[in-house]
Amino acid sequence: MLVHRGFSRPAPADTALTIGNFDGVHLGHRALLARLGEVAHARSLLPSALTFEPHPREYFSPEAAPTRLSTLREKLEMIAAEGVRFACVGRFNGALAALSADDFIRRVLIDTLRVRHLIIGDDFRFGADRAGDFAQLAAAGERHGFIVEAMHSVVVDGERVSSSGVRDALDQGELDRAERLLGRPYAIDGRIVHGQKLGRRLGFATANILIKHDRPPLRGVFAVEVKGLGGPGSAPLAGVANLGVRPSADRQTRPLLETHLFDFDRDIYGAHLRVRFLKKLRDEMTFPSLDALRAQIGRDIAAAREFFATGRPADAADAFSTSSHSPTAPLCPPIL
């Protein structure tokens, strides 16, 4: 997929275009992208997407912005997998936010993106103060010779599919619900980094991935599958993972994803992995000693193995009174 950043270069061909943040690329996004592909094929247009970085809500109110479901890299990879061949990443800044709806249509959609067929979600708004709507796009299309089409929402089990719904499911630990809305298990990609190696002394080495954003949409201990350590088509590896912040002794607050792979002992520093979250086992905990931590990690591993064997994991935290722990520490410090 060809990617342009900004609006300084025109698209390489006339486009069938969709616009959105595409956070998580859930089933609603995928339905829209499937329709985009149909239109592009029928009209011999380039299937294209316009997205923004940062998310507009991160620009206007960073403290209240939603957690991200996917990084820009993950998002671009997922929309490419849905058939998009050209993506434009618009930097969302003051200049773009101040652009009037009419100027957005003329300068971005027509002059830069060469739109001939535009497909948008049913709640799409654009331009300064979000003044632009479907009616304005349709009128512009009649004047400038492009078609505008609105996609209706996708509903799964009575719930409208949305990025906010996925975030809520992940925050509540409802990974089955998140998977139904996404059409796949929720996953995080990243590169393995070095850590403190404490886990090796505890007997549970982990692959550690720094999370690019400060607020991941889920936290806790999970049964996971990992892709990226075999050749194309290789089976995923099973494991248990903690997603949370580093201990205060490490003097960092960036969240860390730590994954212990079952029956695995290879040097994989620098590898790029995809970790798929299948079942939440428990929240994060603090422990009175390294021995208590070691024992709990053993229970987490047993619970995850039981999940993969039967689909009915034991309660990994049932040996501890919840009143004696605070949900602040990860499974173990970064240890590779």
Score class of each variant (00 low, 15 high):
residue 5 R to N: 07
residue 7 F to Y: 13
residue 8 S to F: 11
residue 10 P to Y: 05
residue 12 P to F: 07
residue 19 I to F: 08
residue 23 D to A: 07
residue 26 H to Q: 06
residue 28 G to C: 02
residue 29 H to I: 08
residue 36 L to Q: 02
residue 36 L to C: 03
residue 37 G to T: 04
residue 44 S to H: 15
residue 47 P to I: 09
residue 47 P to W: 00
residue 56 P to L: 11
residue 58 E to D: 01
residue 59 Y to P: 02
residue 68 R to D: 05
residue 71 T to E: 07
residue 73 R to C: 10
residue 76 L to S: 07
residue 84 V to G: 14
residue 89 V to I: 13
residue 91 R to T: 15
residue 92 F to N: 13
residue 97 A to T: 06
residue 106 R to M: 12
residue 107 R to T: 13
residue 110 I to H: 10
residue 111 D to Q: 11
residue 112 T to G: 02
residue 112 T to F: 02
residue 115 V to G: 12
residue 118 L to G: 04
residue 119 I to R: 08
residue 124 F to C: 10
residue 126 F to T: 06
residue 128 A to W: 07
residue 129 D to G: 03
residue 130 R to E: 00
residue 130 R to H: 07
residue 134 F to P: 00
residue 134 F to K: 00
residue 137 L to P: 03
residue 139 A to E: 14
residue 139 A to I: 09
residue 143 R to Y: 05
residue 145 G to Y: 10
residue 148 V to D: 06
residue 149 E to V: 12
residue 149 E to R: 09
residue 159 E to Q: 14
residue 164 S to H: 12
residue 165 G to S: 14
residue 168 D to E: 15
residue 170 L to S: 07
residue 171 D to T: 15
residue 172 Q to R: 15
residue 175 L to T: 02
residue 184 R to G: 03
residue 187 A to R: 14
residue 191 R to L: 00
residue 192 I to N: 10
residue 199 G to Q: 03
residue 202 L to V: 03
residue 204 F to C: 12
residue 205 A to H: 02
residue 208 N to V: 04
residue 210 L to H: 13
residue 216 P to N: 04
residue 218 L to A: 02
residue 222 F to G: 09
residue 224 V to A: 04
residue 227 K to W: 11
residue 231 G to E: 06
residue 233 G to T: 08
residue 236 P to Q: 07
residue 236 P to K: 03
residue 237 L to N: 00
residue 237 L to D: 04
residue 244 G to W: 14
residue 248 S to H: 07
residue 248 S to K: 11
residue 252 Q to F: 05
residue 254 R to N: 01
residue 255 P to H: 08
residue 264 F to L: 05
residue 264 F to N: 00
residue 268 I to C: 03
residue 273 L to M: 05
residue 276 R to S: 15
residue 278 L to S: 00
residue 281 L to Y: 00
residue 291 D to E: 15
residue 293 L to I: 05
residue 295 A to G: 04
residue 296 Q to V: 01
residue 298 G to E: 10
residue 299 R to W: 00
residue 307 F to I: 03
residue 310 T to L: 11
residue 312 R to L: 06
residue 313 P to S: 11
residue 324 S to P: 01
residue 325 H to A: 05
